[in-house]
Write a protein that binds this DNA or RNA. Structure first.
Lengths: 272, 272
DNA sequence: CGATGTCTTGACCCCCATCAATCAGAGTGG
DNA sequence: CCACTCTGATTGATGGGGGTCAAGACATCG
């Protein structure tokens, strides 16, 4: 059931020339677990690379795209809308994230995906992903890791949506995105306190389930308390400790499971 | 980080005698995709069967249980709590559900699990599950299905928590559990409008993020509108259409993905 | 330079949380 | 059989957190 609000059109320009596996964020990408020597295989299975302009929709809830996507660069939002038009952002897609895999009983994708900034993506035909999963156990592992991390984040947002105050919700979201931003290029930005932050206050509102007016008040209040500062598309965390305390934020939810990793390693070998 | 509120102790009595694979809900269980002839293998890998008394906790957020569990009978709640003690139910575990697999970066389970009614569970050591996943592709498929369905449900609750009114949230939860209850024994109860419903109004409140007082008012209101009726541990849906409309509920989120199924089938063979 | 999108602030008020009291049913023990 | 207890359901009164409406400030961009 596609939603009625589809004012923004899909604009994606295929650029099959570029090598889609030159991913700057291999560390967190779907195929990061694959030894370099096996990458030939994945390369033969890559499809087109896409560039999604800012504000374009990659797909809408209810579509049945034949591909899944890995984000190389840019930020995306994954959201659902009610008939009334009210939007809820389910999670944010940052480089390395894998989207479009999750379907419902009809094979529909269950959320819409919109590029917040210009974003580059690598598209993979679903059957080829399945083939990969059959041949390379690491893909299965990595897929589980990504899905579980997203599930963790989703559950924590649910906890917040139901049981936190406005300030706590906003603080949590800021910290989540702050950490995820930094984790992308650990060697350069591992301890920088300022990150790029392309969200509007409207986006924040739709992510935490508040009105944009109230988000504004909360943000101004956090600034007044000298916990953060934010000016055009940049976010600075000033008092990380206090903010973490307010949000009850645990960075552990953003990492994958060494337990699973270790246990899996003993069973899953390399590709046959 | 274990929460401070641990007033309820863990009480599980192992009953290794019983065959844990006599699951009455094979249709939705983890190992449902495995052909009967291969069940010998899974049986050799089963561990103890547990009985969790009503109100006992199977594990707490922050624990590192060495096993994962499949629910055979009974209802469980999976929840997180804030330091203030406020509880948010993330999802409900019904027979066939698989719990304890999802971990964070430290290998901790990310939610607490409590039996709402007396529940029987089959415990599987994690390494053996991994072994199974390596040998039987259907286990991997089924695991993805279960995880994705849970993710769907979680996301829809997030949508509701952020953007729905109290009445819409409650209606959604009732329908979700109504359908899931009926799906368990399709041949007998496929079209019954009354199901067992062991939740207290307190539980509903913690699931949808409202106060129990307000949940009570909303329920009484739904009854007054002649949409449902509920008396001690039983729920009857009177006007399914109207209720579905209010909740914007889509039963499709509860089923697994035929798309994934079909695509997977062409690649994954039977066990080697 | 309008035009559009985003941020900011104020005024008003409603949905729902909180507090408090009562009631019904299920055990439980004598 | 009947007090006693405990959990859960119910209803009323009150107030606050945050939604909604409106208007203005500010920035960016064709």
């Amino acid at each position: 059931m596609s939603k009625s609000i589809q004012s923004r059109q899909i604009h994606v320009r295929p650029e099959p020339q570029t090598n889609c596996c030159d991913c700057p964020v291999r560390a967190s990408a779907l195929f990061s677990a694959i030894p370099d020597c096996d990458l030939d295989f994945t390369q033969t299975h890559r499809e087109t690379q896409l560039v999604a302009p800012a504000k374009s929709n990659l797909f809408f809830e209810g579509d049945q795209p034949q591909r899944v996507y890995t984000i190389f660069s840019g930020w995306m939002i994954l959201y659902q809308t009610l008939i009334s038009g009210r939007r809820q952002i389910l999670r944010f897609g940052l480089p390395g994230d894998f989207i479009g895999f999750q379907r419902n009983g009809n094979g529909d994708v269950v959320y819409s995906a919109e590029a917040l900034t210009e974003a580059t993506l690598c598209a993979f035909p679903v059957p080829r992903l399945m083939e990969l999963m059959g041949k390379q156990r690491e893909v299965v592992q990595q897929l589980f890791h990504l899905e579980m991390r997203d599930m963790n984040i989703c559950q924590h947002h649910l906890l917040g949506a139901g049981r936190k105050t406005a300030e706590e919700k906003v603080a949590f979201l800021l910290l989540e995105l702050f950490y995820r931003s930094r984790m992308q290029i650990p060697e350069v930005a591992g301890d920088a306190m300022t990150v790029d932050f392309p969200l509007t206050q409207d986006d924040i509102a739709d992510a935490v389930g508040l009105s944009k007016i109230h988000v504004n008040r909360v943000l101004r209040n956090l600034v007044k308390q000298n916990l953060i500062s934010c000016e055009r598309r940049r976010l600075t965390v000033i008092d990380e400790v206090k903010l973490t305390e307010i949000a009850e934020f645990d960075p552990g939810i953003l990492t994958t499971q060494p337990l699973f990793n270790n246990m899996a390693r003993s069973v899953f070998g390399s590709a046959p």
